[in-house]
Design a protein around this nucleic acid. Structure first.
Lengths: 265, 265
DNA sequence: TCAACTTTGTGCATACGTTCACAAGCGGTA
DNA sequence: TACCGCTTGTGAACGTATGCACAAAGTTGA
């Protein structure tokens, strides 16, 4: 059961005490090297899910929910509860048996593991349709990723403010990124320009890149690239449509399906 | 050797024959049920990579490249060559030992497996910044995913053309989707509206959804959802920044690193 | 025709991620 | 205090994906 306690509640459970400890700063029992070891060991897939749990938990916290069980959180995040508990165990053991997890404790520990205690300024390169959308996207700043710089190769755009930030010319990428301490670069250029932009970002010291261009970027080992390819997503969906249709056809051949009826595998 | 030398001067290799067969239509040796069995067995991760190979191969074909080895293609796609060969083996054995793969043959077979021989009309719901960008995104139509309908809840937008297509009111979603045979729905609404929009798409018969809203959608089993969450991508990058910084700190503690020097793990 | 060389396709071992199932631990209650 | 019921945390089993390494199968050149 999710319990929604009002602000005036004074029952101090051990979980609540832990919450206080955690927000007071994560020092005590766990040394910095322990955190390091743990971070190194977290599977990539689990990291992605932790980010999702964090979003769900933030929403719950705003609704005044203080405690949640693995079963409930798993439901809200769309995963199996065993998987959720294992994922959380990578972060540390901050649950209370018989009760569940304190929402605030989890939030602060997941934020710590994901490195969200630091500020991560973002630079968007390529102010076309997508670049505009990204510059105006409210989801970034609200989650600790302020858009600090915009770049485009078109001189007509230089100086024009988009989403409150003036566009810089791409030639200034090195100085501007250094000055504004950009740690994440977002490439929203046409594919032809992507590799060149990437190289410039890297030489400007950016070590993390989010790439929307449908190109495989070549980068040094120490640079982390994540790719968002809309066409690939579409094609994966297309594959599932086709597979489903094939299965349906197969079932019909086997006498299971009937005429125009949609088969649900 | 069955190497026929015809009246002309052209040497017809077995690889070239296969190319001809394939473009003539994939019937012959492989029955429809074989394709079905194979499609069922392809791992999700491999499907995503196949889409990438397809893009690379299309580019090569435009450049006039007719043949490519697994090593080269793997390099261009950013994967290990053994993995690439295994992925392609899910599609079928269309390579020629000692030579490589015929580009056109591969393209046509991957397209078949991914279901790209059918048309997949797309509907975009939520014509905000992102919706605009998606409606104007050239990558969709050029890859066989025509944007056939746009929807928004704002009556002021209704009828306004975006990217050449007039926006419909969201209340007309069922009739418009049916009429234009929409098979993929793209949700680009604010998170609060996403689940409701999703439900409407599903009841309109859409079985594949690409969701940009930071919400876990609840759908029936027979509906396929793919999620693109920009904030999650950012947080994964953030995790890597933090991990890298931690490792660097650890190395410094162990006496390896020096002052301001960037540690490359 | 044959031998040398190239590249595919795949069996096998390893690593990784997921799921199950249950002991351990905690809060509540008498 | 001692017990009971609930939920976490995790060992162990399973399944899936990855990478190696090599036989099979093709081409090329003499």
């Amino acid at each position: 059961m999710v319990d929604r306690r009002g602000a005036g509640d004074e029952v101090v459970t051990t979980a609540a005490k832990r919450a206080a400890d955690a927000s007071a700063e994560s020092t005590q029992a766990e040394s910095a090297s322990d955190v390091r070891e743990r971070a190194r060991a977290i599977p990539e897939a689990a990291v992605a899910r932790l980010a999702v749990y964090l979003r769900v938990l933030s929403g719950l916290a705003e609704q005044g929910v203080t405690t949640i069980s693995s079963e409930e959180l798993a439901g809200a995040a769309g995963v199996n509860s065993a998987k959720l508990r294992k994922d959380l165990s990578y972060v540390g053991s901050y649950g209370t048996r018989g009760v569940g997890y304190d929402v605030e404790v989890l939030v602060s520990h997941i934020e710590r593991i994901l490195g969200l205690t630091r500020k991560h300024s973002v630079a968007v390169v390529g102010i076309g349709n997508l670049g505009h959308a990204l510059a105006n996207y409210g989801g970034f700043p609200s989650r600790g990723f302020p858009v600090a710089a915009l770049f485009d190769i078109d001189p007509d755009l230089t100086g024009v403010p988009v989403g409150g930030i003036p566009v810089n010319h791409i030639d200034d990428i090195t100085s501007v990124c250094a000055e504004r301490e950009v740690s994440i670069g977002v490439i929203a250029t046409p594919p032809q320009a992507a590799q060149a932009v990437c190289d410039r970002l890297v030489s400007a010291g950016v070590q993390c890149i989010l790439n929307f261009a449908p190109v495989v970027l070549q980068v040094p080992d120490y640079v982390e690239v994540r790719k968002v390819d809309l066409a690939v997503e579409m094609q994966i969906l297309s594959f599932h449509v086709a597979r489903r249709a094939d299965e349906a056809a197969g079932d019909v051949v086997n006498g299971v399906g009937v005429d125009g009826v949609v088969i649900r595998p």
